[in-house]
Design a protein around this nucleic acid. Structure first.
Lengths: 151, 151
DNA sequence: GTGTATGCAAAACCTTTGCAGTCTG
DNA sequence: CAGACTGCAAAGGTTTTGCATACAC
C-alpha cells in the first residue's frame, strides 16, 4: 500500500524529468510513512542518523520540490515553522488554536466538497484549479476539557 | 458600510476588555478598507508616514491580537511573509501558484460549504469549531496566458 | 560527460522579546 | 493610577544562498 504510493510518486517525478536521488527517495518515503505533519527540523533530525548524507538545505529544497509537484502540502500551525503532509489521498486539516495540534480528516463527503469548490472557483475566477488546502480551526476535545469549555 | 464594520469590530474588542489604542484603530481601519491582503511590511510602510507613532513590533502584536479575536486571518502565498485579510464577511481565497496573487471569493454557496465542513468536523473529531481557512490553489487567467496553458 | 543535486556554512529574512516610557479605562 | 500597550533595538529562529563536490541520467 505505502509502497504503491511511493512508486506512484517516484514515477510522477520521473515523468517530469526530475532526478531521483537517494535523499529525495528517503524524504519521500519518510513523508509517506509518517503522518505526523513534520517540520523540516523534525525530518532532518529523524533522517540524519539513519542516512549517510543529508543536509538541512537538501530537506528544504526537496520539500519545496515536492510541493511544486503537488505531492505534499504546507501547513502552518502558528509555531513559527512550516509543517508538511503527504497528500496522496485528499483530506483536510483541523488545527487546534490552543495547542497547535494538527489532525487529518478523511471523509467521503470531503471529495464532494472539493469538487464543489473547484467548480465554484473556476466559474467565478477563471482559475485553472490544481488543488486546495482546507483548514478548520477550533479547540480540540482535550483543550476543551483543560479550558473547561464543555458543559 | 465600512464604518459600520469598524464600529462593530471595535465594539467586539471592548467587550473583551482589549484596550483600544490609536495604533489598533489605525491598523484595523487599514485592514477593513484595504482588501489587498497586505503583509506586516506593507501595513507598516503605508502607515508610518500618515500616523504619528507606529512601530513594526506594534503591527506584529496588533495583527496577532486581531487573529486571536477572529477579526482577520493569516494567509501565506509562498513569498516568505505572512499576509492578512479582514474577515468580516466569510469568503475564501484563491492563490495563483505561479505569481502568488491572492483573490477573495464571495459566494452564497460558500456559506453552505462552511457549515458542512463545521458539522463534518464536529462529528468526526469532537472539535469545537471556530472558523475555517480555505485556499484553492491554481493558475490565474493571466498566468494561464503567459504559460500558454489555454487551448 | 553534462548538468543538476548535494553539503556546508554564512547570510538574509521574518518574527519575537525585553525594557523603559506612555496611555487607556 | 494600575496595568496594558508602545517603540526601539537587539536577539532568536527559520529559510535561503553560493560555491565546490558528487552523482543521476
Amino acid at each position: 500500500m505505502a509502497e504503491a504510493e511511493f512508486d506512484r510518486a517516484i514515477e510522477q517525478l520521473r515523468e517530469n524529468h526530475v532526478r531521483v536521488t537517494p535523499q529525495r527517495k528517503t524524504i519521500l518515503n519518510y513523508l509517506i510513512s509518517h503522518h505526523t505533519h513534520p517540520s523540516v527540523e523534525m525530518i532532518y533530525e529523524d533522517l540524519k542518523d539513519s542516512v549517510d548524507n543529508i543536509s538541512m538545505a537538501t530537506v528544504y529544497n526537496t520539500l519545496k520540490l515536492f510541493v511544486d509537484y503537488n505531492l505534499i502540502i504546507e501547513l502552518k500551525n502558528g509555531d513559527g515553522s512550516t509543517h508538511y503532509d503527504y497528500f496522496g489521498h485528499p483530506h483536510y486539516h483541523v488545527i487546534c488554536d490552543n495547542c497547535g495540534q494538527i489532525t487529518d480528516v478523511f471523509d467521503p463527503h470531503f471529495t464532494e466538497i472539493s469538487k464543489d469548490l473547484a467548480a465554484m472557483t473556476r466559474e467565478k475566477t477563471g482559475y485553472l484549479v490544481t488543488g486546495n488546502n482546507i483548514e478548520v480551526h477550533g479547540i480540540c476535545p482535550n483543550c476543551q476539557r483543560k479550558l473547561h469549555l464543555n458543559r
